[in-house]
Amino acid sequence: MNAYYALFGARFRELLQYRAAAIAGFVTQLFWGLIRIMIFEAFYRVLSAAQPMRFEEVVTYVWLSQAFLMLIPFRMDGEAMQKVRDGSVVYELARPLDLYGLWFARALALRLAPTLLRAVPLLAIAACGLGLQAPASWAAAAAGAASLAAAFLLAAALTALVTTSLFWTVSGEGVARLLPLTIWICSGIVLPLPFFPEWLQRVLEWLPFQGLIDVPFRLYLGHLPPEAALAQIGKQLAWTAALVLLGRGLLNRGLRRLEVQGG
């Protein structure tokens, strides 16, 4: 456990070194949020049909998604990916750590550290006059927080999956490039999922990506009632478990492949 803790700390200190980059990222995300809110503002100005969300809800959704942008597995674990690509991953096996566990922990640190760094100041500013609303109720807050925690696990499982897929060079590169895109569109980060056509929403319910930000945010907003929390979080965890199993399986087969090829 201590090794994983150390890994976490290292990642944090690494990020804190790049203060200017952190500030630039913060300003960029603030700016992006403003653009998107202004676009929604214009759409809502002349309303011809009932919308799936109120404008205030959209604003809150947008700020939450800006704050938790780094939770989305868009940039993957470059260092581990490089090790698989060049085959130096075999040296990792010499360490007394479960390799999948290590990658999962790295992935979790990769998601958590930058998110924590940016979310706090961004949410603080967004709450002071930029329209971020408080959670719908205490129950909604608790449900949102629990679901957010599950979302981090889900994100880490997706990141580790991309790393393991790289044992298969060509298809792995494809996964590494195209999975982030799928996540980008299907998570709700570019457009809140309730705006998607109904048929597409039905499809998305069967995929894991909704559990990254859409479910936690809608629980927070009360857009999904707190009673639904248990089922939703159950779904997030089930997907996480499935992806972990898949990742582990791929890792074992990949390492065997590497041995057969003679490293």
């Binding site: 002349v46 049909a49 895109l181 056509p197």
Partner: peptide, 24 residues
Amino acid sequence: AQLGVTSIEFFTIAVLFARFGALE
């Protein structure tokens, strides 16, 4: 990947127009 990213951008615009009808 680039084709994908930019297509997503236009897709979201089209989805918004499908919901709202027009933009001012």
